[in-house]
Nucleic acid binder design. Structure first.
Lengths: 250, 250
DNA sequence: TAAATGACTTAACGTATGTTATGGATAATG
DNA sequence: CATTATCCATAACATACGTTAAGTCATTTA
């Protein structure tokens, strides 16, 4: 019932691509229906990520509480939607989730999902990559939604800095960034003129020194303090539980 | 070399969870290095989605051109990043992609990715679900970045409308939406007061009638025309090529 | 029934950001 | 070398949106 009710599984079923064994697998999953009352939390940010749910009844949403007191909602979940796939491939939740009104959900452990993959480490790795990309995207969404121009630009530069550092393209806190201010403005949802203004601001505060494509961050940690940087989404390792499972399998 | 260079594969390798066969599989992939010059396009929105790439050298970006002449950049790609996973599970590209400076990429067909999954239809289905979720998120990012309040709200309402229609929760263009304006404001990145103002605007234009949780869209198509609604990301079927492949396999 | 609470509307005012314009520096082109 | 285009900085002005506040209506609680 439950997992088969979800949108994609329905798509697969309709097209007849699910083998009888696959269907049996899905139908054989343990069903744990939970009744949740309005505004009750399913989990909090940073909690252990070990399960996902299918909404049977009611609306839910996932969100991030921000330092400045505001919050950004990432998604509303309607009946049939899957909550919590986002965190597959991470050890901890990247966002909180809560019911909006009274409802019913079915929960499934990541381990069950894992077994659906036939313990193929490649498939798991690819899904985890995809989820990490999504985490980057979510982070940008949060910044577009909730922060002012200078915070968005600071966050952007710090993200680029971290990603370049991972591939050894940063030396002495300097790196090459082949982007025009026009491109940056198209990414951050602001006008090119305001990107220029904002760069000037950051320069005056001694946070960013830039000459054409050469960018220097005199004090990256100061930038990181200015923005609310969630470094967990950069982390590149699969949860330990996964590697244990994979190693244990034939 | 190429796929193994990517971030997650590196993670898997380090943790020793990739079996020798998996590694052989990855190493055995055909390598098609392509030299791409600055600002050359990799593909355009709505082109056939049949491959993804790994960036070896240079920067690239994916973006959407919008009706109002602006564009929203979804992501910058640095060496080691994978471009084009986003569209796995769709028949056509949801966004364009282009190089920023001169560079080199390796291309892989979705078919190759497909075979890495051992043709497990479940694994493919789950990845496709995940990619569809990501598409929804991208769409929201685009709206947060580029559109004014009334367009964001209109887009939001139309998305909810479509999603509810799919689960038969719309009757006579009316549905129940258990959201406060506070929640909507947290989702759309605007103040609750401005959500109210914007609802008034849409009401005066005869686009949205609302009484508490009851929402009526007298003319959904008019709403859809107001916003630039990309309905391809709602479509729930796997590309036909995939189901053919799956059916053909044992 | 009265009081209190929460959701919403509308108004007044302030501000961050968009828009348009101009000039200067650098790079590309003939 | 001259010319042209591109990128960037800064200024003046316009506006969409945030903030604060006050008032209405419905719902809950006493």
């Amino acid at each position: 019932m439950a997992l088969l009710d979800t949108v994609v599984m329905r798509g697969l079923t309709i097209q007849g691509v699910l083998s009888p064994e696959d269907k049996a697998l899905l139908l054989g999953l343990e069903l744990n229906p939970r009744h949740i009352s309005a505004s009750e939390e399913l989990w909090q940010e940073r909690a252990d990520a070990d399960l996902f749910c299918v909404v049977k009844k009611g609306w839910a949403y996932s969100y991030r509480n921000l330092r400045n007191g505001s919050k950004q909602i990432l998604k509303f979940y309607l009946p049939g939607d899957i909550i919590g796939m986002r965190d597959f491939g991470f050890t901890r939740r990247l966002s909180s989730a809560a019911m909006i009104n009274n409802g019913v959900i079915y929960t499934f452990s990541y381990q069950q999902l894992f077994e659906l993959f036939g313990r193929s480490s490649l498939a798991v790795g690819i899904l985890a990559t995809a989820m990490r990309q999504q985490a980057l995207l979510s982070e940008r969404l949060i910044y577009l939604g909730q922060y002012a121009a200078h915070e968005r630009l600071a966050h952007f530069l710090y993200e680029i800095y971290l990603r370049l550092k991972r591939i050894d393209a940063v030396q002495d806190n300097s790196f090459l960034m082949p982007l025009t201010q026009q491109l940056i403005s198209d990414a951050l949802g602001m006008s090119p003129v305001h990107v220029s203004r904002t760069f000037s601001m950051l320069r005056e505060e001694g946070l960013v020194i830039r000459d054409r494509q050469h960018v220097n961050l005199p004090d990256p940690e100061a930038l990181a303090r200015l923005v609310e940087f969630n470094d967990s989404y950069i982390d590149e390792c699969l949860p330990l539980t996964f590697s244990e499972l994979l190693k244990a399998s034939p």
